[in-house]
Amino acid sequence: HYVEVNGKKIQATSAEEAEKIAKKFAKIYNATVLDLGNYYKVT
């Protein structure tokens, strides 16, 4: 599981952790979290 933010991949140990990381970055960048199955993308 990982999160992609601005083209950078951030490794996460679980889907739950990946979701938390994605939501945190989405809040910082006022962005949207896309759940793409095996990873989250912040756009």
Rank of each mutant, 00 (worst) to 15 (best):
I10G: 01
I10F: 11
I21T: 04
A26M: 07
N38F: 12
T43K: 08
N30K: 11
E17Y: 06
K23G: 06
Y40H: 04
Y29T: 04
V33K: 02
E4M: 13
E4I: 14
L36N: 06
K27E: 10
A12H: 02
K23D: 06
A12K: 02
H1M: 11
D35G: 05
N6Y: 14
V5A: 03
V3S: 00
Y40T: 04
A15I: 13
E17K: 06
A22K: 01
G37P: 02
E19G: 08
K24L: 15
A15T: 07
K23T: 09
S14V: 02
Y2L: 03
G7F: 05
A22P: 00
H1V: 10
T13G: 14
N30W: 08
D35Y: 15
K23H: 12
Y40G: 03
A12C: 15
K24P: 00
N6I: 05
A12Q: 02
V3K: 03
Y2W: 15
A15S: 10
T32E: 11
Y40C: 09
L36F: 14
D35F: 15
K41D: 03
N6F: 15
A31T: 10
N38W: 12
T13S: 14
Y40D: 02
E16V: 10
T43R: 07
E19R: 14
I28V: 09
Q11I: 13
A22C: 08
K9W: 13
Y40P: 02
A18H: 00
K41A: 07
V3T: 02
A18R: 01
I21A: 02
A26I: 06
I28L: 14
Y29R: 04
E19L: 15
A15F: 08
K23Q: 13
I21H: 01
K41L: 14
D35Q: 15
K23I: 12
K27T: 10
I21S: 01
S14N: 10
Y29N: 04
A31P: 00
Y29D: 02
A26F: 05
Y39Q: 02
H1D: 02
A22E: 00
A15P: 09
Y29K: 05
Q11E: 09
N6W: 15
K27I: 12
Y39F: 09
Q11C: 15
G37N: 05
K24M: 15
F25C: 10
L36H: 07
E17A: 10
V42I: 10
V33D: 01
Y2H: 04
Y29L: 12
N6H: 11
E4W: 11
K8D: 06
I10N: 00
K24Y: 15
E4K: 04
Y29H: 08
K27F: 13
I10V: 07
E4R: 04
K24R: 14
S14Y: 02
T32S: 10
V42C: 09
N38V: 09
E4L: 15
L36E: 06
V5W: 12
I10Y: 12
A15Q: 14
S14L: 04
E19F: 15
K8P: 00
E19A: 12
V3W: 03
V5Q: 01
L34M: 10
N30M: 08
K8Y: 15
A12W: 03
A12R: 02
L34H: 08
E16H: 10
Q11L: 14
A12G: 03
V33S: 01
G37M: 05
V42R: 03
Y39L: 06
K24G: 08
I10D: 02
A26K: 06
N38S: 13
I28H: 10
A18F: 03
Y2T: 04
K20Q: 12
Q11A: 12
K20N: 10
Y2D: 01
Y40V: 04
Q11S: 12
K20I: 10
K24I: 14
K41E: 06
E17N: 08
K24V: 12
A26T: 03
I21M: 11
N30S: 08
G37W: 07
E4H: 05
D35P: 06
K27G: 07
G37S: 05
K9N: 06
E16W: 11
E16S: 11
K27C: 13
G7Q: 03
I10W: 09
K27Y: 12
T32C: 15
Y29I: 05
T13Q: 13
V33C: 11
N30H: 13
K24N: 10
E16I: 11
T32W: 10
K9V: 13
A18Q: 01
N38Q: 10
K9E: 05
Y39K: 03
V33T: 03
T32F: 11
A22D: 00
N6E: 05
I10K: 02
T43I: 15
E17R: 07
Y29E: 03
Q11P: 13
Y39A: 06
Y40A: 02
I28C: 14
E19H: 14
D35E: 09
K8I: 13
E4G: 01
K41C: 12
K8G: 05
T13F: 12
T13W: 11
G37L: 06
K23M: 13
V33W: 08
I21Q: 02
T32G: 06
I28Y: 14
V3Q: 00
K27H: 11
Y29A: 04
Y39V: 07
T13H: 12
E19C: 15
I10R: 03
I10S: 01
K27R: 12
K41I: 15
I28Q: 10
V3M: 02
N6D: 07
A26V: 06
Y29M: 11
S14H: 03
K41G: 03
Y39G: 09
L34N: 06
L36C: 15
E17H: 13
K20P: 00
T43S: 11
K27N: 08
Y29Q: 04
N30D: 07
I21R: 01
L36P: 00
S14A: 02
V3H: 01
D35V: 14
T32I: 14
K27M: 13
A31D: 01
A12L: 07
V33L: 07
D35N: 14
L34E: 12
T13R: 15
N30E: 05
F25E: 00
A22W: 07
L34D: 06
N30P: 00
A22F: 05
K41P: 02
V42E: 03
Y39D: 04
